[in-house]
Design a protein around this nucleic acid. Sequence first.
DNA 1: TTTTGACCAAATATGCATATTTGGTCAAAT
DNA 2: ATTTGACCAAATATGCATATTTGGTCAAAA
Lengths: 223, 223
Amino acid sequence: MSDTIDRNDERAQRILDAAEKLITHYGYDKTTVGEIAQEAGVSKGAIYLHWNSKEALFDALLWREVTRTMKSILAYVETDPDGGTVHGFLKGMLKAISDSALITATYAQDQRILGKHLLRRDLSLLDHRFVVYRDALTRLAQVGVVRPDINPAAVAYILNAVSYGFFNLPLPVSTLSTNLVIEVLGDILERALTPEQIGGVDAGRRILVEAIQDLVSRLSTRG
Amino acid sequence: MSDTIDRNDERAQRILDAAEKLITHYGYDKTTVGEIAQEAGVSKGAIYLHWNSKEALFDALLWREVTRTMKSILAYVETDPDGGTVHGFLKGMLKAISDSALITATYAQDQRILGKHLLRRDLSLLDHRFVVYRDALTRLAQVGVVRPDINPAAVAYILNAVSYGFFNLPLPVSTLSTNLVIEVLGDILERALTPEQIGGVDAGRRILVEAIQDLVSRLSTRG
DNA sequence: TTTTGACCAAATATGCATATTTGGTCAAAT
DNA sequence: ATTTGACCAAATATGCATATTTGGTCAAAA
C-alpha cells in the first residue's frame, strides 16, 4: 500500500482534505491537481512531494476514508449493545458509510464522482463483501447469534442488495430520514435472523471484528 | 397510451416479438426498425402501419410487457396461499419481473437496453411504487396482515431498495440461484412483518390487487 | 385495399486539424 | 533542504467537413 512519501503528515492531511472537498463536489475527472493545491494553500509541486500521481493521491484519499469508515464500524461493533449481531453490524455500517460521501459514492458506483476508469477496481469489492459476509454469517450461526437454519450465502447477497439499493435510491420527499430507514431495516433483520434464544453476542463481536479486518486487508491488496 | 393503429393484431404481435428479441439483446439505440422488420418477416413500411414512430413501437412493447408482468403478479396474489401477504407479493413480483428481460431492464435502469432518452420517464416510477407500497402497507396493517407497529413509508422504501439491488447486483458465482434468493428474502420479510396471529389474508389479496391496478393506471397515464 | 422498398431529410458517426486543459517536471527561489 | 510555479508533452475538448446510418414517407406493386 501507499506509494506515499509521507514527510509532512499535517500538510498531507490538509491536501487530502482539499481533495475530498473538491472531488466529492465536482468529481475526480473535473477536479484538477492545481485546484486541489490552491484549496489546500500549497503549490502544485508540493502535492507531488507527497504522491507521485493524481491517481496515487486519490488512492490515498480513498484509503483514508476506508480506514476511517472501518474504524467507525469497528467502534460500533465493539461498543453498541447490538454490535455483535447482524442487524447491529449493518446499522453501524450503513451509518458509518453514510457519513462519508466518498465511500457512499463507492457503494453507489457513482461514476460522476469516482471518474471513468476507477470504477473497474471496485467491481471485485462486491465479491469480497459477499464472501466475507457469507463466512461471517456461517460463523455467527455456529455461535447462536443468528438462526442456524438461514442460508448464509443468500442472506449475504440480500444484505449486499439492500445496501446497494439504500445508497442508490434517493429518499422520497416525505418524513423519511436516513436514520429512520436504517433503524427499520435493522428491526427487520433482527426479527428475521435472531434465534428464539440469542447467545454468543460477544463471540459475534469477535467474528464481526475479524470480518471487517478481513475486508480491509482484501482491499489493501489490490487484485 | 397507445397511438397504435391495430388492424392486424397477429402481425403486430409478431413485430413486437421481433422487437423484444432484438432490443433485449442489442438495446434500443442499436436496434433499427429495418432489422425489426426483417426479423418479423415484414417490410419496414408495414411497421409504420401499426405505429407511427419507433418510440411508439417501443412504448407498445413496454406496455405489453408491463401488462403481462402485472397479470402474472395478479395471478400469483390471487392464487398463492401467501398471495395476500407482503412477502408473498414480493416473491411473486420478483419472479414475474425476472421473467421479463425488458421489465428487469426498467428496474435496473439499464441504459444500454432502454436507450438514452427513455430513462427519464421511468424516474417517476420509483416515486409511484413508493406511494403505492406505502399506502398498501398501511391498509395491510389495518386488516392484520402485517404488524401494526411497522412504519409503512420506511418499509416501502426498503422493499424498493432490496428490489433495486436484486435486479442490479449479479448473483455471485456459487450455488446461489435467483429463486433461492427470492425464497430467502420472502422468508426474511415473513418473519419480520407478520403479526403474532395473522389475519385478513383475503382482505390482503384485495388490497394488493388494487395496489397493482393502481400502479398500472399510474403507468398508463404518463406524467 | 394492403403492402412494399426505393427514396430522402435528419440524425449520427468518422476523421482530422486546431485549441485548450492538465498531469507531471525541475531549475530556480526561498 | 524545502518549496515553488513557469514550463512542456500528453491528453482532452472543440469545430467542422464528410461519410454513413436510420427513422419515416409514399408512389408503385401486389
